[in-house]
């Protein structure tokens, strides 16, 4: 399964085991079972934030730790098979825009979803609206994870 950035960022927050114990358990179990995947978009979002912090002289140690964490996570992208993942993203975008009524999906979400589709992974997110939109365009390998 490929999890959305919002799940990974919650998983990495302080006191997640108290605030969202089921989410913490879900991600931990998936990681231990070698089933968890994240997208390079998530990698990009997390890394750019910490790189910025580092440039502002606050958080070199955090950056090192984040890179060590990301280094151990299986990360998937869109670039294999001659860029076929990007074609998949374009198809998803076109399906959403031609839907009646038209559906707008953020580019970041779209690229993460396309990564899951390209690698034939189930997509898991907290975002119920995104799940509904994806289901509306016939994207069925998507699961909404309750924020708990």
């Amino acid at each position: 399964m490929l999890v959305d950035t919002n799940i990974i960022s919650e998983f990495l927050r302080p006191n997640v085991t108290q605030r969202l114990p089921k989410t913490e358990r879900f991600v931990r179990d998936a990681l231990e079972a070698d089933e968890l995947r994240i997208s390079f978009v998530t990698h990009f979002e997390l890394l750019r934030w910490q790189l910025k912090q580092n440039l502002q002289r606050k958080g070199r140690r955090t950056l090192v730790t984040l890179r060590q964490f990301l280094d151990r996570c299986p990360i998937l992208g869109l670039d294999g098979a001659g860029g076929a993942g990007w074609t998949r993203a374009a198809e998803l975008w076109a399906s959403a825009r031609t839907h009646e009524p038209s559906i707008v999906i953020d580019d970041a979400d779209l690229l993460i979803v396309a990564t899951a589709a390209f690698h034939d992974e189930q997509f898991v997110t907290f975002d119920t609206k995104l799940v509904a939109n994806l289901e509306a365009i016939g994207f069925v390998r998507v699961v909404s994870l309750p924020r708990q």
């Binding site: 990495l12 231990e32 730790t65 964490f69 996570c73």
Partner: peptide, 20 residues
Amino acid sequence: RRDALRYAGRLRELVTDEEW
């Protein structure tokens, strides 16, 4: 995987809620 979990634990100590 074990190391990933360990680093996740460290990140919880290093990054505050406000930063998230």
